[in-house]
Structure formats: C-alpha cells, structure tokens
Design a protein around this nucleic acid. Sequence first.
DNA 1: ATCTCCCGCCATGTT
DNA 2: AACATGGCGGGAGAT
Length: 905
Amino acid sequence: MDRCGDAGPQGKENCSSEPCKSTLKTPLKQSATSHSVLAEIQSNSGPLTTPPKPKEIPLGDPWTPTTNLKILISAASPEIRNREQKKGLQDSRSEILEANHCLQEHLSGDEYEKSQPSRKEKSLGLLCHKFLARYPDYPITGESNYICLDEVAEELTVERRRIYDIVNVLESLHMVSRLAKNRYAWHGRHNLNKTLQTLKKVGEENKYMQLIQLIKKREYENEFELDGEKNEETATKTIGINEHSEMCFIELPGMEFRAASVNSRKDKSLRVMSQKFVMLFLVSTPQIVSLEVAAKILIGEDHVEDLDKSKFKTKIRRLYDIANVLSSLELIKKVHITEERGRKPAFKWTGPEVLSDIQARGKQIFTRHPSLMKLVKSIESDRRIHSAPTSPVKTSTTGCDQNSSTFPSKMAQLAAICKQQLEGQSSELKMKTKLTSNLECNLAAPESILKSETYTTSPSPSLVHSLGVLPLSHNSMSPVMLPHPHAGVSYTIYLHPSQTQTATTYSPSFVLQSVPCTNVTGVKTALEVNSKVPFSKMTTEEGDGNVVKNDTNFLNAKEKKVTKIESTPRSFLKRSQALQENNLIKKCKHGQKSLGVPMGESVKNERPSSRALHVDTEVVSFQERGQIKFEKLDQNMECCCDKERREGFPEDRSKTSNTQERPVPFAVHAHEALFPSGYLIPIARCTQHSNETMFSNKEKAGICSLQPATYSSPITGVIPVTASELTAVNIPAFHVTPMNIMVSPSSIAAAPVVNSSCLNSGHTHSVQNPSSSILNFTLQHLGLIPAGVQVSGNPVLQSLPISPKAEHVNTVSENVNLQQGKVVKNESQILDCELNGKSVAVIPLQQQPSVPAKPKESQVVTENFFRTPGGPNTIASLSSFPENSDRAFQRTLTIPQRKLEVSDD
DNA sequence: ATCTCCCGCCATGTT
DNA sequence: AACATGGCGGGAGAT
C-alpha cells in the first residue's frame, strides 16, 4: 500500500490545488466552453505547483463499486459525465472516499478485497477515458487548457505514474504538450490529423511497411523455425532500416520539448514507441498490427542484436500500455489475428484515415487558413453568446439528398471499395459530432441537441446548407460536403469526378445505396489477380461471436456488415473459393518464398475489448461492422487505391477509386499553426511561435501569423485547404438572408474552410479580402463552381467564408470533416461578404494552375519536421523519397486542378 | 497457460 | 535534496 509513494510524492508545492481545482473540469467536452470560462480557467491555473496531494488513495481507492459505476456511466455518457463534473467532483469524491473508508472498516479482508475495484476497473484504458472526458476534443484554440498532472492524478485517484503513461502517449500525438513541470497544455485533436499524417510519412520513409512485411514473411516462411529475434534481425537488416534510423520523437521545429528532462529521455520509450506504433498502423495496409510484429519492429530498431525474451516481454507490456490509450482515443481497437500458429493479439486502426504524403499532396490543395479557423471559432462562441436562436428546430436536413437517390451505382461501388476507410473516420465523426452537438446546443434550441451518436442538427435546416466541396487532389474523387441529414452538420463526401455532380448526404441511407456488391466482386478479382501475395486464411472474430473466415471479398463481408446491404451469395461463393485458394497457397508456401508475404493472417473481428468502453454504441458498432478484413484483399485494395491515388487516377477509374468519403463530422482544426505544441505539425510558421504566444495573440487577431508571408498566391482571398486534414468546416446557418449580405460578425457562422494539413508544404494560404471576381474566377477555374451552379442565392449560407472580423464569428466548422477537400458552395455569399467589406476567407486554391505559389518554407518544413532533436537520425529516410516534398509539391501546385464538383442542392 | 497490464521500485533529470 | 519523470519488469487478475 505504499502505492502513492513513489509516483507522487505528496507534497508538491506546485500547482496549488486550488486553482487547479477550480479549473479542474476545465473544458468540459460537452459544455460549450465559453471564452470567459476558459479565460477563467486559464487565469486560475496557477503556477505549476503540485498540490499537496492528499492522496489518500492508500486508504482506499475511491474505487468503490459506486465509483466505478459512475465512471463507467460517465464514460459512456458525455452528458452525464459533464453533469458529474459540474456537480463537483470534489464532493462526490470525498463522499466516496468516506464511504469507502467505512466499507473498509466494516468489511474484513476478504470482503473488502472484493469490494475493491477489479483490475479492469483500474485499467489504463478506463483511466484514459476518464482523463479524456475532462477535456474537449477540440478545445478552442486560444484558450488553452492546462493540465495539472497532480490534480488530474488526484481527481482520478490514481498515481501520477499512470497519468504519465497517458500523457506520454497523448504527447506523442501532440494532443498535449508539456509546458512546464507538472503542467501540460491540452490541444485535443486539433493536431491529430497532421500528426498522423506526419507519422505516416515518417513511417513510409522508414519503410516500416516493408519491414512489417518482411517480418511477417519470415514468420510465415519458417513458422517456428527461427526465433523471432533472428527473423526480426534479419528483416531489419535486410531492409536496411534501422540501426541508423533509430527514430526519435518526432516533433516540430520550434516545438521541441523545453524541459531538458523530457529531452533526455524523449527518444526513448513511450512517446517514441507510441509514435512508431501508430506509424505501423498507418503504413500497413490492412491497418492491423499484431503486438508481436510491433514489438519486434520496435525492438529491432533499438537493438537488433540483443533481442531477448525479457526485452520482448517488456516491449509488449509497453505496447499494451500504449494501445490502451490509443484505444481510448478510439484510434485503434483490439482484434485478434488468427493464423495457423494460433491466435495473436493485434490492434486495428480505427482512427481517421490518413493520407500518405503523396496522396495528401494532391489533396492538400486547400488549407484552411488558421485565421479562418479562429474566426469560425470566434463566431461560434459569439453566437452562443449573442445570437438568438435562429432556427431552433433541428431538422434532419437530408437535403442534398436528392442525389442520393440518384446515386449512381458507380458510386456505390466506390463506396464499397472504400468502405473500410469510412470506418476509420467514423470515430472522427463521432467526435466531431459531439462537438457539433455541443455547439448546436448552444446555438440552437434544445431540441436540436443531439446525442453524440447522432449527427447534430443544425439550428436551421434551411440555413444550413451543404458546404462547398473542394476538389481535392489528383485524386479523382471530389469531396462533396453535404449537410448531414440528421444533423445540421455538413460533411464531405468524396466522389469520383464522374460522380461529382451528385452530391449525397452522408447518411445511413447513403451508405446503403452506395454499396453494391457486384462491384466488389469485380474489384476483388482484379486485386487478386494482381496481387503477388498469396492469400492466407484470415478470420476475424467479432465481439458478437461472428467469425468470418475468408480471404477475399472482405469487401463483401464488410459491406454486408457495414451496410447490411449486400450479402450476395455470390460473394460467399467467391469467398469460399478464395479460401480454397489460400489453402492451396499455404500448402505451397514453403516452396514458394516469393509468395512469402505472409500477409494472410486471419483477422478476426474482435469483439470490443473488454476494457474499452463503448461510449458511442453506434459508432462502435459501425466500426466494428466494418472490421472484417481480409488482409490480402485489403492489401491489394490498398495498393490499388494507393497507386491510383498517387497516379491520380483517371476519371474512368472511378470504380476503383476509393471514395474516402468519410463523412466525418469534424471539428475544425483551427490553427494548427497556432497550436503550441505540435511537434509534428508541418506548418512551418506555426512552429516558430512559442506556445504561449500563439495562443494569446492569434486568437484575437483572427489571423494567422502563418500565412501571408509564406504564400502569395495570385489569387488572393483564397485559402487553400488541405485535404489531408479532411476537415471540412461546417457552416451553420447564417442569419443572413440570401440576398442580404449583411452579415454581422456575430451572425456569421463558419466558413467552409477546408483544412488540410500540408505536411510538407505547409501551404496554408489565406488571403483576406479576396476580390469576388477573383474568387469566382478561381472557383470556376477550379471547377469548384459547377458551371451551371448558381452559388449564391441560397439563403442558407452554408459555407460562408469567414469574415475577417473573425472575432465574433462562431465556428461550427468543427462539424465537418473533409477528407480531401471541400468546395465552397456559396461563393456568392462569400463574395457578398467580401463586398460588404468583410474579408472573406475561404477558397481553395493552391492547386489552381494559376497559383504556383509554393511555400518556400516547404522545404524547411520538411527538414525540420521530422527532426528529432535528440536523435541522430531521424529521418535519413527522408532521403528515401528523393522527390520529396518540395519538388513534388511544386509540381503538384502546377498541376491543373481537376474540376471540383459541387453538389448543389 | 497465456494474455493483459497494474503497480510501484528506482534511475534519471530538474528545480 | 527534494521533487518530477518515466523505464522497467515482477507478478497477478482475466481469459
């Protein structure tokens, strides 16, 4: 029971508990944090003092059944959670403690023991959930949220040591950054996409994919003959990764850890391991990584030589720790891979899809200007405060769906192909949704409040419109942002160019329609043919007990599960065939090393890990449904998709194109640039600012410091959005009448800004006060504005560019997440705004041919990007992609933009 | 038996 | 020296 001993010495002078306490529930996720509140919090947060920790944990963890229940409940229900928090944790806690104490006294040994929380209840995952519940996924940017470790530990009644585990992982994702001793800044998921993108890039550069495959191959080839170590070693050497590539923590230039302490160990463990682990998911095709492989790779990098069991074991332990946190973040999910050797634990990526560098490049065309983001946010907050509920009624605007009905079969096919990708986004959606709902609640009438699972309804359906869609990259798919039927949230769907004209709302219905089975089969076949990898049988176990075995048609399976649409007998037949094939292959595997890529593991859809809390049932289930994957297929598919993406497939390829439409309700990432600590954040300029600085000033300015200087694009007024972020801004209804352009700052909702993270390029441009003509031109040129489309007129200003005065603009942007790009539909409105003297923001441009703007920084950024202060390496690998960013990027810029499709509703 | 992974000792860094 | 961080692995609950 000396538990508290080490981890948290009690008396810390830091962080007076008072401030912290008051701050405590800091930014409640659900509650729309108002500026004032945040400000208060900030001001309150005192010096970094560690509150004398009254850690009576030893006395009896508050982990009484009651506590547990509360925790679980709160974890499951944001509303409840918030309520709880508001209610005052202190009180409840003390009560609990007391109760517990009593319990302890009255129950003797055994009994007391039983009353104690089970191991599960103390899991890191659960703890992480609690931790995350304390902060909003997308905190308002200027109002940073501080995290006082001591306080958190105390409130969560855990040792500080545990908090470190969580924080370290969060740090690896740049969701938090260390400000000082005992203090961290909470960034939420604002930087997540960028971070992931960067990680993916680094992972690619480090050839993790190959390494993984090599390892798998070895295993596959010599089932048990060689020890993993040797395999690993060999693999590593073969690939030529590692030794030198020992990667250190990836951070952004200017964002390095300030504390030496952190630096000292930063290249070690948890943080780095976490990043690497994530990289593995991002680079591997079926985004499933077994612990074993991950451990080997991680160990391999460190010390290829001494790979002993204990080390391996330790690595596994750490991976579990990390996995728990990542699971809580809903980035991964535990699954089991069943192969001949047996079942082995693995994790499946369920986070947002991350475009590869190359892929992203094309898509990154548009980046939301930081200032816009801020504006959006400002608007939002403003709205909350000032604006009257305009249209309280939440209508499920299914609008735009006219198209859905018309949804071409092609689309469906595409959807099928990419469905898996959607899964990943679902989580994001969920998150975004939450945010949205919060916002909505604030803005709209109570009725409009939605549950986290549901999409939020916009205050006024009519007002809410679909945002424009920005064409994305080379990818032929055009993202279309549509209002969510259920919610007022718009989201973007990527359609193939050919499909572009059709806009659909992301809705269940949509999904269903979009996924025809037939296509899947065809695709599959093609893939199979092409694939060099032998199929192996894979099985996915699901929580519900379904076990699917199959190698092919994972799509079908998936489809079936996801959409419930099709389960064609045919597909099953195919499946069986595939299985047979696989078996044959397996039998021959020894003889054929060439086939060797041991991809085929059976993946089982796993039931939700016991630990994981299923907060959002819908989401989870959705994700789960889509879980079944057949590695091979996946892989193949992925490859194809990838290829296509890179090549920028021609339009006719639409079938295969992966529609990544993940309608993801997204929070607007505001200012990545502003973000204090994102190490991975590519945006060059941002990094230059110290955290503190960034927060304070920029917010008000509403303008990102980043922008202008860096890119000058002929087209002013346009803000390039990066597709990579996939974030679309959802623009809530405006209070503006169609004709009327008078948008009061307060009334301005959000601008449809597409946010993207240009990892390499950091192309964030934002122009202010673009001339309308220019905008029009640009839009047309880009194809954003369909020739026939009439942009204006629409009373509902969906995508409203944000007014420069951003300060008062409310942001709703958080709702939508665009994967690739968005098109702003209401250009007219935008123009209007501008005309009115408001500066308009949003319009994607970078890709426009005419805009050659290439950030000079890109190069710099790239270099720094991965630079790991502590480490040597880092990225020697960058070299692996010779063409790296700059050039490629430039080229990209020059590439004529493909036509953007705007769905007009 | 294996999988998970909590727990907390203790080394390392910071203040 | 006291405190902050966090590497690490024993060992026990969960399966």
